[in-house]
Design a protein around this nucleic acid. Structure first.
Lengths: 337, 337
DNA sequence: CTGTTAGCGCATTCAT
DNA sequence: ATGAATGCGCTAACAG
């Protein structure tokens, strides 16, 4: 549907028998415009319901006051929270937020980036697709002067601005907590192996175990694809060890929920035979009769907000040395366990 | 950050000693351009990394290939799901999605609408703020030829396009289910009184009760503000009746979860002393030891997708008589109860 | 098959 | 204090 006829400064100028530049200046309270003229212009503008055509302004200014956000799945709690944080910061500075979800598909991610580039968004915030290794499509944005800030799923290279969860800190807290509760044989159910965060989690786990002088046993490290079945398989591999773990650190609350369901079929009892700590701190766990011991809050909204702040400062102040921000987690302990 | 220098068709034209219109046409595979010219243009464009400037195209065409989405809270499961559906449909037709959250604040809602109007989005999808009564800011979009489709929180007037949950159908199913299970005294904990959906739910409840020839008792109707405390108060008012209900229909799964928590403190047992059915069908309930009886799936993604489909057809085909779509819910029964 | 030109709405520079 | 003129990048009408 084509836009109907809509007032422009040209029309206002004609009706008032003055020039468009005078109208433009009057509307912007330019000091060199006489009071009476300004009044007349503003009154007529209001009467006609004039609103500036932003597409013209964007085009002319070469900037769009819009930031793009690219992430895998809008529907995941974490990302929804992150967007909420981004939107909050953006709105406060009169920026618009354009969203694209990659569905963890590299091609889609590239397409979204290209579209955003062509639309001349002023900057982009990205949480990468699970499979993204090649970063060329992000580097291409440099040429267009479009700054990029990554969050959560960030590249390894220190050449990029990024905001992410402080995995070592959070994991340290989690393992310390388990040790305080007397656990020495601590297993881990990690996310998909191809994800950088999984490797990071394993590395951290190992270094913390070492620092705590706990015995490291590679058999205690399992990976899963985050599905109930994958969780069951991973769990099975841990629990069928000659010396199974007494506690497990899991990549996500949902994995623990699935794990507990599975264990019920095996008559293994949560918080008795085995204990869980995980990441996410979903609000729902507080409604469980027998919740996992604790979960690590990762502050998605805060991560999004921080990414947006960095991006906006990049937009306003131009290039700066890349920042690498870590957001600390908080271990939230459930009930008495 | 200002955009760095970026190739334009003008440059390509100059380097090739041809006119910009030829370049433009060659890039669009216009039939009247010779093969060799087209090749030369495309090769150079690729070499320079040329990408069309969409802001210029938007400006010139008077349309932006962008749809705006205005909703209260991005972070709520329902709305996150809806956006996901919208985004899916939009992407398939090469439309961008611009998001704004109103935080249930009318002024913010108006500001967002104005901004989107000025940006000349091609259409807008809205779930209204809780307090919005006056619809002038939506009507103002007509003048700009910007179609609007409401979803979930929709106006009463039939002048607007809208997609919403089929409250009568869903509520009928829920109450029928409770009756099949033998309940005759069925209470209801509704959402905030000022919300249209609350009134709708009550009305439906009453008419279903009537149709089923159950006794209607206004004392069985309570309202809550969706907080745990509000839920407790509403519940208290029902349970302290001389004849308390044996089953309760609640506005949302979260309300039931809060209700169950509260009842524990009173030694009232879920699925024994009282039974619950609610709306939302949150995935989490399947992890509960003792879940509420059933929940009504409202298909947020489907609602969003449907709204987007209608909007896009409005954009493509121009004005049409307003549609009023109801999305049927599905009663999902939990375990054996 | 290709070139020339106008114009979308606006901010802005240069004149006056 | 105001006007005239320019140009952002692109498409399309018109001209050859």
């Amino acid at each position: 549907m084509l836009n109907k006829k809509v007032p422009t400064i040209k029309e206002i100028a004609k009706k008032l028998n003055i020039s468009v530049s005078t109208v433009s200046r009057a509307l912007h309270d330019h000091p060199s415009i006489g009071l009476s003229t300004r009044e007349r212009v503003k009154n007529l503008a209001a009467e006609l319901g004039y609103e500036p055509n932003q597409t013209a302004i964007f085009f002319k200014q070469g900037r769009t006051h819009t930031i793009g956000v690219v992430l895998p799945f809008l529907i995941e709690d974490f990302f929804a929270g992150a967007i909420s944080g981004i939107e909050e910061i953006a709105k406060a500075q009169k920026y618009n937020v354009l969203i694209g979800q990659s569905n963890d598909d590299i091609e889609r991610e590239k397409d979204i980036i290209t579209a955003m580039k062509n639309q001349r968004v002023d900057g982009i915030i990205v949480s990468m697709s699970k499979h993204t290794k090649n970063l060329d499509h992000f580097k291409a944005l440099e040429k267009y002067g479009i700054p990029v800030v990554f969050f959560d799923r960030v590249p390894s290279s220190s050449d990029f601005n990024k905001v992410a969860f402080d995995m070592p800190q959070g994991t340290y807290e989690a393992i310390s907590f388990l040790m305080e509760k007397g656990h020495r044989r601590i297993g881990i159910i990690n996310g998909p192996k191809e994800m950088k965060s999984s490797k990071e989690r394993t590395d951290t786990y190992m270094s913390v175990m070492q620092k705590k002088r706990l015995k490291i046993d590679l058999q205690l490290v399992a990976y899963c694809d985050l599905t109930p079945d994958g969780t069951a398989t991973a769990l099975e591999s841990l629990m069928s060890l000659k010396q199974p773990p007494t506690a497990i650190l899991a990549v996500h609350d949902y994995v623990v929920l699935d794990a507990i369901q599975y264990l019920k079929t095996k008559k293994i009892r949560n918080n008795k035979d085995i204990f869980f700590v995980s990441y996410a701190n979903l609000p729902i766990t507080k409604y469980l009769e027998n919740p996992p011991m604790a979960s690590i809050e990762q502050y998605p909204t805060r991560q999004g907000a921080k990414a947006a702040e960095i991006l906006l400062s990049l937009i306003d102040n131009g290039d700066q040395p890349p920042q690498n921000i870590l957001i600390e987690g908080t271990l939230v302990v459930h009930k008495k366990s």
